[in-house]
Amino acid sequence: MRKGTSDPVLGPKFAASGVILRATYTDPDAVITVDFPGGKVYTGVDVGPVPNVQLFMSADGGNRFWLGNLNLTMAMAKGDVRARGPVTKVLKLVPAAKALFGPYREMLESDGRTDLLSS
């Protein structure tokens, strides 16, 4: 997410959305808040600004999304991802977020986490 918010092309697109997104992951537990207008990423429970959109999913689901293997709309329809707030704003950001799938994969490879690439 930090790469996306600081990217000269993607950053302004994300900022214009007005979205402050909090993603709450389970198994293992993690919370990430992305202030797209402010261009900042926060980690931890109740850290950062109050979100206007929240997503709740397993960490495996988040990994599958960033690998390009999870359709967010379908996952919400199935109940695999729960959402709160104007999720249509987040869904509009998905096409731009796809540009981060490659860098995410590269990050996993450079961190030696090839075990996460087959999700």
Rank of each mutant, 00 (worst) to 15 (best):
V90A: 11
V50R: 15
P8R: 03
F14N: 06
S17P: 05
F36T: 13
I32V: 15
V31Y: 03
G112N: 06
V41L: 06
P95H: 08
D29L: 10
E109Y: 04
S58D: 12
N52L: 08
G79W: 08
I32A: 07
D46I: 01
L67T: 01
K40P: 03
M76K: 05
Q54C: 12
G112V: 00
D80T: 08
V9P: 02
D111A: 11
Y104T: 04
L116H: 05
L93G: 02
G44E: 08
K89G: 03
Y42D: 10
L100S: 11
A96N: 09
V53N: 02
T26S: 15
G61S: 14
F65V: 03
M57S: 05
M57A: 02
V47G: 07
S119M: 14
G48L: 06
W66A: 06
R84H: 11
V81I: 13
D29N: 12
D111T: 00
V9A: 13
P12V: 07
V34D: 07
V50C: 04
L116C: 03
F101R: 06
F36C: 11
G38T: 02
K89I: 06
V19F: 04
L55K: 07
T114R: 10
G102S: 13
A96P: 04
V41A: 05
P49A: 11
T24W: 01
A23S: 15
A59R: 13
F56H: 13
V81K: 07
L117Q: 05
L93I: 02
P37D: 00
G38F: 02
K3R: 15
G68W: 07
F65L: 02
K89Q: 14
A59N: 14
A15N: 01
S110V: 03
G68H: 04
Y25R: 14
D80A: 09
P28Q: 02
R84W: 11
P49D: 11
G39Y: 05
K40V: 12
R22W: 05
R84I: 10
P28H: 01
D46C: 03
A83T: 12
A59D: 12
P86A: 12
G85Y: 04
G68E: 05
R105I: 12
N63H: 10
A96Y: 11
G38Q: 08
T33V: 05
M1L: 10
V90T: 10
G44L: 03
P95I: 08
P49K: 09
S110R: 14
L108N: 00
